[in-house]
Computed example of a mutant assay.
Amino acid sequence: MSRTRIALVFSAAVVLTAGACAPQPGSTTSAASSSGASTAPTCTVDALALHEKGRLTVATDSPAYSPWFEENTPANGKGFESAVAYAVAEKLGFQKDQVKWVVEPFAHSYAPGAKNFDFDINQISITPQRAQAVDFSSSYYKADQAILTLDNSKFANATSLAGFKDAKVGVQVATTSYQAVLDQLKPSQQPGVFNTTNDEVNALKNGQIDAIVTDLPTVFYLAGAELDNAKIVGQFGYAGGTPEEFGLLLSKGSKLTPCVNKALDALKADGTLSKLSSQWLSASANVPALKP
């Protein structure tokens, strides 16, 4: 996948909740950890429980795709999730050169056990199942699922989720998109599962699949930067119409979780998350909502 930033300018922001006109980053979810919530956390750098003393270690997958990261370089501060990570770091008291990035494959991130990072930021949806093994922060972004196909596909003019019953749909491994496809598209054949978004795009080009399902911002990027003949068919909510919520992932019972939540609360309150969302994830609201 190309690492060059594509300036995708659209007419309005993604409609995420009734009456909203821009991506609304950050709302506390029931799956988010409440570790340490009973007392006010001490969140000075010296007091933080860190993987490496005096340094904030942040994880994400590789390759790191736009619009979440740019140029496959998380440390450059470009892209929504890179910018959010550095904003959280600043609220915690770290300078940019005190942030260290490490690679953590998406499917490994929420496995039980010790972590080699302080938090992971990688479009990881907060779910009760995952929260049994790891901590999640409150959410920093919400997004619907969307369906992408080629403009000459027989599915390009589908007006409902049922229209994809006979489609071969591609999803990325270990994502909530897989379950969303099973629950709401209910295809007659099992979805094709791919290791990376790049693999999904190649499969679509080669006719191995008929459509891709992933979050709406990523669909906009793929349609604008990776495919010349793509069509965004529509969007749909996950889990009964509720948009997916992305959270920072921490080790289970991490003493850092309440401090990360405190930092995110401050970023919501001062408008930083909204500003970063508008800067990096602005997208068209003119994508039809697909009903069952």
Rank of each mutant, 00 (worst) to 15 (best):
S2P: 07
C21S: 11
A22V: 12
P23Q: 10
Q24H: 13
P25L: 13
A37P: 00
A37L: 05
S38Q: 09
T44P: 02
A47W: 04
L48C: 02
D61G: 05
F69D: 02
G79D: 13
S82Y: 05
S82K: 03
G93M: 06
Q95P: 00
E104H: 10
G113H: 03
G113C: 01
F117I: 00
N122G: 11
Q123I: 05
Q129R: 03
F136Y: 12
S137T: 02
D144E: 12
Q145K: 09
I147Y: 10
L150K: 10
D151G: 08
A158K: 15
T159I: 07
S160N: 15
A162P: 00
A167W: 10
A167L: 07
K168A: 07
F194A: 11
E200C: 08
I212N: 03
T214S: 15
G224P: 01
L227Y: 02
N229W: 02
K231C: 04
I232H: 11
G234I: 06
G234C: 13
G234E: 13
F236Y: 14
G237N: 11
G240F: 06
P243R: 10
P243Y: 06
G247R: 01
L248E: 04
K255E: 02
A263M: 09
L264T: 01
L267C: 03
A269E: 11
K275A: 15
Q279E: 12
W280D: 04
L281Y: 05
A289V: 07
